[in-house]
Nucleic acid binder design. Sequence first.
DNA 1: ACTTAGTTGCAAGTCATTTGCATCTGTGTT
DNA 2: AACACAGATGCAAATGACTTGCAACTAAGT
Lengths: 149, 149
Amino acid sequence: MDEICHKKIDIGSILKEKGYKVTEARVSILEIFSESKLPLNAEDIYKRLLKNKKGNLKNINEATVYRTLSSFEKSEILKKIDLRKDSVYFELNNDHHHHLVCLKCGEIEDFKENKDMEKLLEKIVERSTKFKTIKEHSLELFGVCKECK
Amino acid sequence: MDEICHKKIDIGSILKEKGYKVTEARVSILEIFSESKLPLNAEDIYKRLLKNKKGNLKNINEATVYRTLSSFEKSEILKKIDLRKDSVYFELNNDHHHHLVCLKCGEIEDFKENKDMEKLLEKIVERSTKFKTIKEHSLELFGVCKECK
DNA sequence: ACTTAGTTGCAAGTCATTTGCATCTGTGTT
DNA sequence: AACACAGATGCAAATGACTTGCAACTAAGT
């Protein structure tokens, strides 16, 4: 079951670095993100927490999930993503990439923009606007995936 | 006061083309969009409607605003935009462009990506993913505007 | 073990958006 | 110009994602 985990991260150190107490809720939530290829919303997280702890561990409240997500976003552990769905998605703020969202089934695929393009983009923006400091950008693509075609 | 209007559109024809009845609410809402340079949310629209009709015309209900926006989006008169704010923004689905959002003051500036880049983007995506049909994409940039610097 | 600042659970609150339903109105027809 | 009716609107209540106040709890330094 470890094959799904594709990013090794030391959760304890990350939390301490940011000045967080290392609590069960935070560790579990970060574990879930580190095991997931795809962006997750609060409900996804909550459901997976329930599944993980079948009796032996106590539940984590939904309010805690929301609080944790939003505080992890502020401390830049997570990144917020908008996928034109009715709730907000998050993913680890590890490496910059974008998303393809199927307009029919809602499937999400990652997509890595190439470096040249990112630079090109920033140059164009700096030349043609009055925004001098571009901190980040979001690029999401919407289409139809193979299965739905 | 007509100098603000930078897109001439025949609102009546647009509505009829899409099979809509030409009602006061719809005409007023489209007028507001055609006079605005920037994306607007439901509240913006509602406030402007109130301002426009100082007594002589009857008010338009907020539910109607929401219904109109969402139906205009489905019929592709409007485009929905996510600007990481707490409500959804819309703009006329006329010409493709992107937005710069100031992370401090929330100011929004339009930004036109160049054609070459759009094509490059689509090619990269088609080569590297299993999404064959890209229908649209959203690209929003977040930074700090001159005034806030 | 003691202390306490930071966390969490719970329940109630907020706020954008949606919806059910009765009434009304634009539009094609007579 | 009045008629009929599908579609549009107003109103109020509902929804659903998310937030917050507060009391109880707990990680982590002493």
